[in-house]
Simulated scan of single mutants.
Amino acid sequence: MTNTPALKPERPFFSSGPTAKFKGWSANNLKTEALGRSHRSAVGKARLKYAIDLTKELLGVPDDYLVGIMPGSDTGALECAMWTMLGARPATVAAWESFGNVWIQDAVKQLKLADLTTLDADYGKIPNLASIPQDNDVVFTWNGTTSGAKIPNTDWLEPGRAGITINDATSAVFAMEMDWAKLDATTFSWQKVMGSEAQHGMLILSPKAVERIESYDPQWPLPKLFRIKKGDKLNRAIFEGATINTPSMLATEDYIAALEWAKSIGGRQAMFERADANARIVTDWIEATPWLRNMVPDPAQRTNTGVCFVFQGDYYDSLSPEDQAYVPKQIAKQLEQLDVGYDFNGYRDAPPSLRIWCGGTVEQEDLRRLLPWIEWAYTELQK
C-alpha cells in the first residue's frame, strides 16, 4: 500500500509548452518602458535587438550567422525556412513524432516537392539518418517534443555538405549544444525551454542559408509572414530588431527576463547541467519502477527535456486499450486537481503516456516531490 505523500511540489509546473517560468519570476519584475510604444520606436526596436543579441550570445551562435524574431512561434519560423529554401534541390524530411510529421505533410501536401524523400519512425525511435544523401536538403527535429527521442549526435551530417540543413530545435535549444557548423536554419520558440510566452519564434540562418534565400525564388506564392527578402536580398532589418508583423513587447520583455536569468546562473552550460540533472531524476525513477518504461529504448537517444514514459506490467496489460488510455489521463487529472502537478499528460497523438518537462527552469526538488505522487495515484487507480 502506498501512503499519501507528505510534500507537494512548490512549483507544480511540468508542462512541455509553455514550460515553467524560472524560480523567482514575477510579472512585477518585467521592464515596461516599451509597453504602449510602437515596436518601431527607438525603445521598442532596441528591446527587440537586445533579445536577439542576448539569444546569440547565450547560444554561442557564430558571428556570421543571423538571428531574427519571427511570427507564429516555432511553427512560423520553421515553415518560413521550408517555404523560402526548399525546392531548389532534392530534399529529405525526417520525423519521429507528431511535429516532425507536420513538416512531412507540409513538404508532401503543401509544397508538393517533386524530388522528396521522407523518413519516419515510431514514437521513441529515430529513423536511419545516415541514409540521407549529403547532396539533399534536409529537415529534421533535433529533439522529439512529443516522444522524448533526440538525435544522439550530428555524425550523419558531413561538414561542408551540399544540401542545406533545416533544424527544428524548439525543445532542444538551451538544453543541448547545437552543432552550428552543420546547421543552416535553426528554429525555436520562446515558450519552450526558456518558459517564456508563446507566439514568437526565432530563425537562425547560416551564410549558406542566406545565399540560398538570395539566389533562389520558389515557385509557390509566399504569405507575407514568410517574406524575408527585400528585392533580391535578404531583408537584414528583420535580424536587427525589425519584425515582419507587430510583436508583443510584453512577451518580448518576458523572454528577455528569462535570458537574463539564464545568463546570471552561468549561461547555456548551466542550463544544460540543470536539464541533465532534472532528467536523470526522472529517468532513474522510471528505470527503478517496474510498471513503467521509458518511451525511448536507446539511452543515447533519450531527451533531457520532455521525458516520456508508458505503463506496463500485469495490471496495466490486463486492461482494454480504452482503459489503458484512461490511466495516464486520470493520473494527470487527479494530480492537477490536488495542485501537485499540472499538464504532464502525454501528447494527444502519442501512445498513452505521461510526459514530464525537465528543462532548466524546473527545480530538482519539485521533480523529486512529484514522482511519489504518481506512484500514489497509480496505486489508487487499482483499488
Rank of each mutant, 00 (worst) to 15 (best):
E10H: 12
F13L: 11
F22K: 05
K23C: 12
N29S: 14
T32P: 04
E33M: 13
G36R: 00
A42W: 12
G44N: 01
G44L: 05
L48W: 12
L48C: 05
Y50M: 13
Y50G: 11
Y50F: 14
L54A: 12
V61D: 06
P62D: 03
D63I: 11
L66H: 12
G76V: 06
E79H: 09
G87E: 02
R89I: 00
A95V: 04
W96I: 01
S98V: 14
Q105I: 04
Q110E: 15
Q110T: 15
L111C: 03
K112A: 10
D115H: 02
L116V: 01
L116F: 00
L119I: 01
K125S: 00
I126F: 05
P127V: 03
L129N: 02
A130D: 15
I132W: 00
Q134D: 15
N143G: 03
T145I: 11
I151T: 10
I151G: 00
L157S: 10
E158F: 09
G160Y: 07
G163K: 00
G163D: 09
I164K: 04
W180P: 08
L183V: 15
Q191P: 07
G201F: 04
M202N: 11
A209R: 04
A209S: 10
E211W: 11
E211D: 15
P221S: 15
L222Y: 08
L222F: 06
L225W: 13
R227I: 04
K230F: 03
G231V: 06
K233M: 14
I238W: 11
F239Q: 00
G241C: 07
G241V: 06
T246I: 14
P247D: 09
S248G: 08
M249I: 03
E253I: 10
D254N: 15
A258P: 05
L259N: 03
E260F: 07
I265K: 10
R274T: 14
I281S: 04
W285V: 02
I286R: 00
P299I: 08
R302C: 04
T305G: 05
T305Q: 01
Q312R: 10
P321I: 06
E322G: 06
D323Y: 04
D323V: 02
A325G: 12
A325W: 06
Y326F: 14
A332Y: 00
L335K: 01
G341K: 03
F344C: 05
Y347H: 15
D349P: 02
P351G: 08
P352F: 10
L367F: 04
L367H: 01
R368L: 11
R369A: 01
R369N: 10
L371M: 03
I374S: 02
W376P: 09
W376A: 09
T379K: 13
